[in-house]
Design a binder for these strands. Sequence first.
DNA 1: GTCTATATCCAGATAGAC
DNA 2: GTCTATCTGGATATAGAC
Lengths: 201, 201
Amino acid sequence: MARNKELNQKIKDERREQILSSALMLFATKGLSATRITDISAAAGISQGLMYHYCKSKEEIFSELIKYALDRMNAACIELEKLPLPPHQKIKMAIEKLLQGFDANKNTSYYYLLILQATVSEAIPREAKEIISQGSSLPYEVIERILIEGQKEGTIKDYDARDLSVVFWTSIKGLALNKAAFGGSYKMPDPRILAGIFLNE
Amino acid sequence: MARNKELNQKIKDERREQILSSALMLFATKGLSATRITDISAAAGISQGLMYHYCKSKEEIFSELIKYALDRMNAACIELEKLPLPPHQKIKMAIEKLLQGFDANKNTSYYYLLILQATVSEAIPREAKEIISQGSSLPYEVIERILIEGQKEGTIKDYDARDLSVVFWTSIKGLALNKAAFGGSYKMPDPRILAGIFLNE
DNA sequence: GTCTATATCCAGATAGAC
DNA sequence: GTCTATCTGGATATAGAC
């Protein structure tokens, strides 16, 4: 009895994983609206009707993916800030890790595409919009704080820290979207190019 | 008689302008698929049925907007390359002009959103895909050539020129998308921040 | 040229059998 | 838990009146 329940739960969890993973790819490459529920079910290898045992709608899946992406990004930023390193090293490391992540795993760049859609699009469930509007400012704040610290030490260039933080993230996002667009054929540039935007030599 | 024909043509042209302009905003903020033909007709102030006198489908409008954006961008790049200026000045000027353009006119950043959609999405008419795949490499090539020239003169940093060109455009695109996402509230950063990526001091 | 009304089609969601 | 069949709604596209 208990055995069966456990097994069923396991199957259910695995299917849900499968669904989320398929949906990520489809949402990223077609957008929420153009992705049909049957696209997701086909990619996950189940019938269309069965989808409704695992989720209420594709909007729900979309929101869940957004939440997951934001949570991970924010957690990583908090970790970064806590590291026992001088600020300019934190910036260097962040850039290296982010670019490596894009090269290693295309899903990473797909998440950026999802976040962009959710930020920019009016055709997105209210829930996803709320998750975004509440959870997307932390990375900017963290980088800004680190840059200000570095400016005090004289290791970071003396432009407006808010501007620098915006350039940091828009450049990263630009590269992520390029990766999502051109995929395997495209390799990330030398991270020192980006680091040079911020660091005094 | 001839008068009427001229007048009719003029009305027709104006309407078409209206439709294209409304469609740009809607495609950028909702995506092609989520934009209904009635959204466009309502924004242009005409009935849904009348749309079919001015275009075959929303896909056709989308392709036309993509073509227009690419043509203008490519023409601007060719102009830039021809200017009688040293390479590092061309880079500086390109960055300044691009950022000014984003601040001056939100439509500019909307075009970037359209290009991104057309590049990344599978749910895009074949025609738009073809336009993109044929017409989107020139800006990268032009910037790469200018950078190589500057490297010979010692005014441009000595990283791989292809990498630098990719960073140039991905950073610009990142800023454009940020503008599209956050709109009026967001002001472009100091162009010297970006220029510093490329220029030897 | 412009509108309203209608037909067609397709995706989302539900119901019922296994 | 899983499928197939069906209902429903909404968007596209067309037809016909003014």
